[in-house]
Design a protein around this nucleic acid. Sequence first.
DNA 1: TAAAACATTATGTTTGTACATATGTATGAA
DNA 2: TTCATACATATGTACAAACATAATGTTTTA
Lengths: 243, 243
Amino acid sequence: MKIALNHKSPIPLHIQAEELLRKMIKDPQFQNGKLLPNEVDLANQLAISRTTLRQALNKLVYEGLLIRKKGVGTKVADAMISSKSVNWLSFSQEMKARGIPIRNFELHVSWIYPEEVIANFFNIKTDQKILKLERLRGRPEGPFVYFVSYFHPRTGLTGEEDFKRPLYDILEKDHNIITELSKEEISAKGADKFIAAKLETEPGSPILFRKRFVYDQAERPVEYNLGYYKADSFVYSVESRRS
Amino acid sequence: MKIALNHKSPIPLHIQAEELLRKMIKDPQFQNGKLLPNEVDLANQLAISRTTLRQALNKLVYEGLLIRKKGVGTKVADAMISSKSVNWLSFSQEMKARGIPIRNFELHVSWIYPEEVIANFFNIKTDQKILKLERLRGRPEGPFVYFVSYFHPRTGLTGEEDFKRPLYDILEKDHNIITELSKEEISAKGADKFIAAKLETEPGSPILFRKRFVYDQAERPVEYNLGYYKADSFVYSVESRRS
DNA sequence: TAAAACATTATGTTTGTACATATGTATGAA
DNA sequence: TTCATACATATGTACAAACATAATGTTTTA
């Protein structure tokens, strides 16, 4: 791997460093939780300041590609990222976003008897309680714009978790569950009374509705969730290419 | 608004600054595209260095809450949440589906002057006419469930085509245009009068709205289209996988 | 032997400084 | 009037340096 930057190039050094880091992430050498070179050494090797290096690192950490730990080091977040990382990005970002302590939100945890659809998905019976997390969200400056319910079977979360941390993080670190696949169904519907009240709108007003099935690496069901997004405040972007 | 930070607090200054900025964002004072105080002044006012301030600003910029422009300033972004994902299946499926000869449908062909968005996409001027195809569709036994407008520039279809054949087929065989990439934006909205009339429903009733940009292999714009799907009659499926 | 104290390592926080570059505005000549 | 120039303004990039703090490893001590 070329481990040098072009200081003459009009492309900013932190951008070049970012690109290089993205390549390093793909390198098998840094895959299985192995640590990247420490910041000071790497900065020296690239002949840039630590500040500039951190500018690049921060971006990838924010995207969830790298994980830093004070006193330990920086490692690649997940074991297998390849060329189509765009695909996963949004998914993990949303995963990550779930735990971000944003002002306008409520989190409600409860144990419920699952509906048949959910019980079927988790391969359990309807008399086995599962965990339900409900969260109402909005932009810091605005009104609430979406409401999501997450459902988890007993094999996943225990309900005792400290939900200050990202859900995704809890699943991965505490329960060793790596989410891998997501199947979503997107549709429009009119708000029912419950949702209308939550999102402070009229019953019948247009809602973007999303059903999501999440599986782990062995295709075992990990999570089922339902999202209700207020119209005109959410756009779902899809990019598809003929392969 | 309290415009000071606690330098004694164990909470890092850039976190405190971030919190303060989130409050500022909510303030009507900075709403309609009005600029925030410039970085140097703000940093002085908060008695922190510009670097530390920028650490906080960067986070909000990354979250899409703030927009910075070199030489101009920093302003609060308009409220709009977006998410990205990828899928292949639905694209080719719908391509194919377009041409299926279903009973209940209407096809309307006309030449129109494009709106600015469309002209921009096709890289033409608004005084150059383009082809517009409108189609209303439903199941043979049921009501109409969706309405789509397809827009094509003069470099594509001529309007003389026999639209009995699949659109997709005509493009490929007669004009040698191979569609390759599609970018879509999916959202929910209330039906306006026109759409409500077409789909035989009430104005304001929930509609799944899809905007689609289609490109060929050289990433040249090929088609722009708008789809209106009656709620509860259409589900959009997306499957995303970690690499 | 196990707990406590210390040392090492790597990231986290913060400052000050300097120059580059894009944008908008005021100035002045053709 | 119009175009080019110069200047002011605000963000963008980059460096060096210092100290704080968390995790881990190592040594000392009870």
